[in-house]
Design a protein around this nucleic acid. Structure first.
Length: 568
RNA sequence: UGGGGCGUGGCCAAGCGGUAAGGCGCGGGACUUUGGCUCCCGUAUUCGGAGGUUCGAAUCCUCCCGCCCCAACCA
């Protein structure tokens, strides 16, 4: 396996308990020193940032130890799965910078799994049960009481085989029979109380069509898939810890009769990622999409890989995030500020700078000649000299940011107010002489003067406290900007079992439709990222057209002024 | 009242018997034509609690407390 993106930008991956285990396994000569992992998503939704943690772990471990990592679509439940999802999953894994050693589907193994199941029956390790779901639940017992054997538990091998074959042949409707492992109905581990191996589902499968009407359960399909692929370390999340004895049971009992299964994969569990102000379950994300509370799986407010991509996140930032959060067994809730920090850090060194005025306020420079236009020199990226410079037009009428002017400024306000001066970025020092208001008293225009001797870079050496961005009114292009805020107001949406939807942030999306941007911006391709100086990082949305450019705000810049102002 | 896990600063996380790394966040300062970036400095006398072993314990032992997961023919 390999990584398609530069790895040098990622900070060194720290060791964690899983890498410790792999290291000692190699040292002990297990699996002849082979390391083989797999990333096994179910194609029933889009991948999210939590999956990114698993992807980075599985592909990362394989890469670091010279091993392999498969992508396996765990498609054992036709009712929920769809090819749209299998395509999206592959696209997102690749975009994150990983390439699988091999691509498999659990459904590739349906015939083999079926044969193994028949062998289990012949070995007396599985039986067909004809209890319905309710009856099965009653027989299962409770957390503190053992279960009771099903009256069908002691059917003969011949009867079980016959029934199972007829299940496959489609002779029975959904829910009438299941194949169960014969383990121990009194086990203190409920997962070992004769778990279901196969159920009847007369559903078309996205890959196998109508070839099957019985489908293996996760608990049966997963260990066998791992064993068939020669997986050595099967990494999954904590909630499967209780399933490990069953995982081992399947591997052992199937291996005993299947010479081709040479490997004995080991399941290791780690804590899934949780992010504050975010929901992470595919079920909840599906609800947001279906109820149209967001604009699809790739809505920039979604924690999906597709959403983050459209929002302007880079694969490098996401990988860096995943390496910083660590891998452990402790339940965790990562502060979304860490995710934001990793994009800022990445984009700060990569994104070209630009001037854009989100909420324009008109400025007329009374002592600047009418009709005159100067081309001023601007730095494309102060963090990267090779990014070069560009020229931007300056003229008598400008737009500045409304919030950069205050008629009655508080102390420490270093921007524009009546009678004060600011530097116009890359241009001159500007002084506010007069405020023009409409009949309602709202400020509609500023009449200003400039200091012709103060051009940026000149030797005048005069300094003012503040610098603001601007754009020439006659040259500016109009654009739409979409400002995103967190989707949920609560740090823990749905906390205490309430509906997470009541925690939705009603203003998570704000569209600004008359943003003024410097001319060159309008022609940028979808996906291009910029820093709008003093504002944040923005990314050209796929909806963007040259005559109607659209930018998504990826993340704001850190705002020291907001912090100071907020204290008062 | 069963079983499986987990408890180190606000959030993560190293640590594996020799005297608490690092990151994010937060606070202060320097620098600054982005109130960005960068750079300094500060931020756990203590590791869920109580006992015990030891010259020495976050690390070993005992008991206790708290939190999470498991009773789908989901994964």
């Amino acid at each position: 396996m390999s990584s398609t993106d530069s790895e040098t930008t990622d900070s060194a991956t720290p060791l964690d308990f899983i890498r410790d285990i792999v290291t000692s396994d190699i040292r002990a000569g297990k699996d002849a020193g082979r390391v083989h992992t797999r990333f096994p998503p179910e194609p029933n939704g889009y991948l999210h940032i939590g999956h990114a943690k698993s992807i980075c772990l599985n592909f990362g471990v394989a890469r670091e130890f010279g091993g392999r990592c498969n992508l396996r679509l765990d498609d054992t439940n036709p009712a929920k799965e769809d090819t749209e999802y299998v395509d999206a999953i592959q696209r997102d894994v690749r975009w994150l910078g990983f390439e699988w050693s091999a691509l498999f589907y659990a459904s590739d193994y349906f015939e083999l799994m079926y044969q193994y199941a028949e062998q289990l029956i012949r070995d007396g390790k599985a039986y067909v049960d004809s209890l319905n779901a309710d009856e099965m639940r009653e027989h299962r017992g409770t957390l503190t009481e053992p279960g009771r054997n099903s009256p069908y538990r002691d059917r003969t091998t011949e009867e079980n085989l016959d029934l199972f074959r007829r299940m496959r042949a489609g002779e029975y409707p959904d829910g009438t029979h299941v194949l169960r492992a014969r383990i121990d109905m009194a086990s203190p581990n409920i997962n070992m109380r004769d778990p279901t191996l196969y159920r009847i589902r007369h559903d078309d499968h996205h890959r196998t069509g109508n070839a099957w009407c019985i489908y293996p359960s996760y608990d049966y399909a997963h260990p066998i898939s791992d064993a068939l692929e020669g997986i050595t370390h099967s990494l999954c999340t904590l909630e499967f810890e209780d399933h490990r004895p069953l995982y081992d049971w399947c591997v052992e009992n199937v291996r005993a009769r299947a010479a081709e299964l040479t490997s004995r994969p080991r399941q290791i569990e780690f804590a899934r990622l949780n992010l504050n102000y975010t929901v992470m379950s595919k079920r909840k994300l599906l609800t947001l999409v279906e109820q149209q509370l967001v604009n699809g799986w790739d809505d920039p407010r979604m924690p999906t890989i597709a959403g983050l991509r459209r929002r302007g996140y880079t694969p490098e930032a996401i990988r860096d995030f995943c390496s910083r959060i660590g891998v452990a067994k402790k339940e965790n809730v990562i502060d979304v500020a860490l995710l934001e920090h990793t994009v800022r850090e990445d984009l700060n060194r990569r994104a070209q700078r630009a001037l854009a005025v989100l909420r324009p306020l008109k400025v007329v420079i009374e002592n600047y000649p009418e009709g005159r236009v100067e081309q001023l020199n601007a730095t494309n990226n102060p963090e990267d000299a090779s990014a070069g410079t560009r020229s931007i037009p300056f003229s008598r009428e400008l737009h500045i940011e409304r919030e950069d002017f205050m008629e009655e400024p508080p102390k420490k306000f270093f921007r524009l107010s009546p009678g004060t001066e600011v530097r116009l970025r890359y241009a001159y020092i500007l002084k506010c002489e007069r405020v023009v208001k409409d009949t309602a008293g709202a400020v509609v225009e500023l009449r200003c003067t400039y200091d012709p001797e103060s051009l940026s870079g000149s030797t005048a050496g005069r300094r003012v406290k503040g610098t603001i961005h601007w754009v020439s009114a006659t040259h500016a292009r109009d654009a739409e900007v979409r400002l995103y805020d967190r989707l949920f107001l609560s740090e823990d949406p749905g906390e205490g079992g309430r509906d997470p939807l009541v925690d939705l942030n009603p203003t998570s999306l704000e569209r600004l439709i008359s943003v003024k941007v410097e001319p060159a911006l309008a022609d940028a391709d979808a996906g291009t990222r910029f820093q709008f100086e003093r504002q944040g990082y923005f990314c050209v949305d796929p909806d963007s057209r040259p005559e109607a450019p659209v930018f998504n705000r990826t993340v704001t810049l850190k705002d020291g002024w907001a912090r100071i102002a907020g204290r008062k």
